[in-house]
Structure formats: structure tokens, C-alpha cells
Simulated assay, not measured.
Amino acid sequence: MKSFLYPNIHPPSFTWINAEKTQIEKVHEWIKPITNKSNPVECKTAEIIVLGVPLSRSSISVSGASEFPEAFRRSWRSFTTYNLEDDIDLSSMEILDAGDVPMHVTDIRKCHQNIIQASTALYNHFPASTICAIGGDHSITAMMVKGMHRAYPVKKIGILQFDTHFDLRDLSDNGPSNGTPMRNLIESGDVNGTDMYNIGLHGFFNSQDLKNYADEKGVHYFTLRQMRKAGVRETVHQCLEELSSKVDVIYLTVDMDVLDIAYAPGVPASTPGGMTTEELLEGVLEAGKHPSVMSMDIVCLDPLKDAHAQPTVKLGTHVFLTFLTGVMLRKV
């Protein structure tokens, strides 16, 4: 069924059919899709809006990340809304699934334009909600942020990035791909390089010219070694405090390739020596607690590469729920 957001956003690729329950226990019972029966005015009260962005044709490496939004939705049944470690039940939050951005079969630039339009529509209609985009490859981040900038042209945007890579490749060589989103935003003027903070760089997966470009543009970055020396929570807190003193709103982007291949086999550019699951979840929780973080995405998770039982898909959903736990902790 279409919704009031159509044609910028299509209905979800997968929805759960649930019997009415007086007590919500599972995530699939909690997150409701926006349909043509949804009241646009009543929907504005939602604290969280989920958006699927099923694009991976713009990935440098072979990727089925376009399959993650549906796999993400299907995984909800495996999770409860109660977080034992923080003694918090997320079901008191109002959360809606807006559906998926429509994608062109062959035209990547058209896909990117669709993401910008969908992002703009969401930020215009839900100015008080936290938007959570489920990718898709990392090229979607630039488009989601561009949409935010269109909706809020006077607001200054900062980015907190968990990533193995700088994602600052030359656009003239790589185009608007998953290797260029941060450079795309710098060169378009949507985000200043000095307002980008990257945590998780490690090993032999970035060229020196990308580091030189980051230094030239004033991008802030912390290698895994630096993060571990200072502590993940302390590093994230430092980044957020510095960012919030300079910008109006912070966009969190989680590239799942920041994780060690042992923890996340289902990513297109998996690497050894990356973050542990515990480190990423701790960092995302800290980011979720900060009131300036009003948007987030999870990108570069390929269910087709995942091992039996889809451990990376489940971890991606865990990252999402951990972020929401942080959002709830703002009220405590």
C-alpha cells in the first residue's frame, strides 16, 4: 500500500503481519509501517523513522548490500525490545518504518537523486524525529546528508564516522561511489572537512594520498590504535563534544567494514585487524546518548556474503537497537 510519502518513498519491501497484542515484546511487533491508512499529522509524533536505502550498484567491490534493508526487517523477530544490560525497554518509543527509496535499475545517478529527494521529504515531514537509514553501500550517506542540508539549509552539519576507510577517493576517478561519500560532501560544500570525525582506521587499507587529502581538508581521524589507547567511549565522547561545539546537528554513519572480518564476515570489504563487536556497540551507544546526533545510517552490510545464520545481519540490527538505547538514555 502506498503512503503519503509516495512516490518519494515506496512501501517497505517486507512487513510483518501481527495480531494485536496488549504487551509488545519483540521488535517485529513494535515497528509499524507507514501505510496509506497512516495519518500524516499523527505520524509526526514518531521519535524514530526507519528508511530502507537498497542501493549497492555504486559499490567499488562486488556487493549485495542492497539486500540488507529486507534482511534487516526479517531479523526483527529474533530480538526483544528489552535491553537487559541497560534495563531499558524500547517499546515505549514510537517508531515507524517509512519504507524504501525507489531505485532505478541501471541509472546510479538517478538512484542517488531519489535518495536526496526521499531524505529531504523525511526531514521536512519529521523535523523532530531521528532518521535511521538502512543501506545500501556507503554512497547513500552523502545523499542522505545532502537531503538533510536541503531541508535545513541554515543548519551546519557534522559527521561522526565509524569506518576502516577514509572514503575520500577522487570523484573524477571513482564517481559518487561508496569510496567517495565524504569527499563528495566536502566538495559539494554540504559539510566542512573540519566537521568530519572518523574513528576506526587501521592496517593497510588506505593510501597515503587519501591521508594527505584528509589533512589538507582538516578531517579529524582516530586510528584503532589511538582509539584503544584512549578508550572507545572517551574517543567518541571527545569527538561529539568537539563537533557539537561547531555544528547544529550530527549525522552518525556506521560502515560495518570497520569490524574485524572475524566479527562481520558479511561485508563487501571485510578486513582483519578491525574493531570488535563490543567496541562498536560501545561506541554506537555513546553516540546515541548525545542530543546532537539526530540521524544515523548503517551501510555496507551484504547478507549474500553472510555465513550460516546471518551473524552480520543480526549484528547490524543489534547496532541499530543499541543506538536507540542510547537515544532513550538521553531521557534518564
Rank of each mutant, 00 (worst) to 15 (best):
A309S: 14
S292R: 05
Y263A: 13
S245F: 11
L259H: 10
V267I: 13
A287G: 00
L329Q: 15
K305L: 14
E282A: 00
G326F: 01
L280D: 04
P311I: 09
G266P: 14
D257V: 03
I250Y: 11
F323D: 01
V249C: 08
D260G: 09
Q310R: 09
E242L: 06
A269D: 14
G266R: 15
T312R: 08
R330F: 03
D302T: 04
G274V: 10
L280S: 05
T312I: 11
V293T: 04
P268F: 05
E241I: 12
V327I: 14
H308S: 07
L329M: 12
I250W: 00
D257T: 02
P311F: 11
T253M: 09
S292M: 04
C300V: 11
T271W: 10
G283H: 07
L315R: 03
R330T: 02
T322V: 09
V249D: 08
S270P: 03
M328F: 11
L329K: 13
Y251F: 03
V319W: 05
E242C: 02
L315E: 00
K246F: 06
S295W: 12
L321A: 04
V313I: 08
L280A: 05
A307V: 14
S245Y: 08
T317I: 07
L285P: 04
K289W: 00
A309L: 15
H290K: 10
T277D: 10
D260I: 06
S292D: 00
D302L: 08
E279N: 01
Y251V: 02
L324I: 15
T276L: 15
V293K: 02
D260H: 08
E282R: 02
V247E: 13
V327E: 12
I261H: 05
V332C: 12
L329C: 14
P291V: 00
D306Q: 05
A287Y: 03
L281E: 00
I250K: 13
D257G: 04
T253G: 13
K289A: 01
P268I: 05
H308G: 09
D260C: 11
F323K: 01
K314D: 14
V319S: 09
S244Q: 07
T277H: 12
A309R: 14
T271H: 14
V247I: 14
I298V: 12
F323H: 00
G273N: 09
G283S: 12
A307P: 06
L321W: 07
E282C: 02
G273E: 09
G266S: 15
G316F: 13
H318W: 04
A262K: 02
K314H: 13
C300T: 10
I298K: 00
L315W: 04
A262N: 05
A264W: 07
E241M: 03
L243D: 08
Q310K: 09
V258I: 00
L315D: 01
K246Y: 10
E278W: 00
V284Y: 09
K246I: 00
G283T: 10
L281M: 02
P268Y: 03
L324M: 15
A309H: 03
M256P: 01
G283D: 10
L329N: 13
K305Y: 11
I250C: 10
R330G: 02
L243C: 06
E282D: 06
V267L: 15
L243K: 08
D302H: 12
M328Q: 15
D255I: 02
C300D: 14
V299I: 10
A307I: 12
V313R: 05
M294C: 13
A287Q: 04
P265Y: 10
A309V: 06
E286P: 04
K305W: 12
S292K: 09
G266C: 14
D255L: 06
A309K: 15
